[in-house]
């Protein structure tokens, strides 16, 4: 949002604050599965992400050179968010978190406790337990969680600095499977909501941000895109677009059209009576017929603008 200087929603007023840290970018980027370190570096730059995630793994004793990710980042300015992937329960997650913190780069931790090999869906009970323990240990805890509003509230009560509900299982690109729940979570949460996992494209991100998400964490949809650098930029813009759209207040959804052009003063064909054929055909007033119908053809009329009937559920925020 920093690029939106001078507009209504930007700067200090719209900073994302997690664990006391103020972030300008609401786009968090994972570092796994990129085709090469060079592509990763370029994608990271294009994403403008400040928060980057990592996994903690054993050093390969035979090829110590190859796999450390930090050597491909130019250090400062990033907030490191290591994850506990590989953990199957709270004990393992706590251990991995402590190993991660001992690297001395961050006391943030993404709790990730997968309970199913095929879906990698998070174990809610162990996630809550790990969150409670890690908060007590002084970590800034961001649990990856199911998109369950009650669980998210429990995690918040346990001291999570943010909650990270999944849109869909990790790496599936299925988008937001339960927008209703995500919307509820965003509506009720007292901590930032970072939609993590399942994102497929920029459209999913805009949707999540418009539902009120505070930020987005992606990895696979950027790393495995045909052009990861292009996708990183697209998604960064989607985060900004979705956020601004959310803040700016969308119009209510309506059942029927509403003219965007002035309905007064439409010039009529000489000899015409000014009444369109449709009004009679549908038994509605010209005002209703013209409402929202731009350049509706020769049937335009002088009728007064009238209110269309709102779609029952309003999307206004």
């Amino acid at each position: 949002m920093a690029t939106m200087e001078g507009q209504a929603h930007d700067g200090i007023g719209d900073e994302l604050i997690i664990g006391g840290k103020s972030l300008r970018s609401r786009f968090f980027l994972g570092t796994g599965r990129f085709p090469s370190p060079a592509v990763f570096r370029m994608a990271l730059e294009a994403s403008a992400a400040e928060v980057v995630t990592f996994a903690v793994r054993r050093v390969n004793l035979d090829y110590a050179e190859d796999d450390a990710i930090l050597q491909h980042m130019d250090g400062s300015g990033y907030t490191y968010l290591p994850n506990t992937s590989g953990a199957g329960n709270a004990d393992e997650a706590v251990r991995i978190a402590k190993l991660a913190r001992a690297a001395g780069l961050s006391d943030w931790i993404k709790v990730e406790i997968s309970a199913h090999p095929r879906t990698l869906l998070p174990d809610p009970i162990e996630t809550l337990r790990a969150t409670e323990r890690l908060v007590r240990e002084g970590f800034v805890v961001l649990p990856y969680t199911s998109d369950d509003p009650i669980l998210c509230r429990r995690l918040e009560e346990a001291g999570a600095a943010a909650v990270m509900p999944g849109g869909a299982p990790i790496g599936t690109g299925l988008g937001l499977l339960n927008p209703y729940n995500l919307g509820l979570i965003a509506e009720e949460a007292g901590v930032p909501v970072i939609v993590d996992a399942g994102i497929g494209s920029a459209a999913d991100i805009v949707q999540a941000m418009e539902l009120g998400a505070s930020g987005i964490l992606v990895n696979t949809p950027v790393a495995k895109a045909l052009d990861p650098v292009g996708m990183a930029r697209a998604m960064r813009l989607a985060v900004e677009a979705g956020r601004l759209s959310y803040l700016s207040g969308r119009i209510p959804k309506r059942r029927y059209a509403s003219a965007s052009s002035e309905t007064e003063g439409v010039s009529v064909l000489p000899g015409g009576n000014g009444e369109g054929r449709y009004a009679a055909a549908y038994g509605v007033s010209n005002a209703e017929a013209a409402h929202g119908r731009q350049a509706a053809g020769p049937a335009g009329s002088r009728a007064k603008a009238g209110d269309g009937s709102d779609w029952p559920e309003s999307g206004t925020r």
């Binding site: 796994g32 990592f54 903690v56 054993r58 050093v59 450390a68 990710i69 930090l70 994850n83 990790i170």
Partner: peptide, 10 residues
Amino acid sequence: LELVHFVGGG
């Protein structure tokens, strides 16, 4: 002993 480091991950 366990020797670990950061690798790419989401």
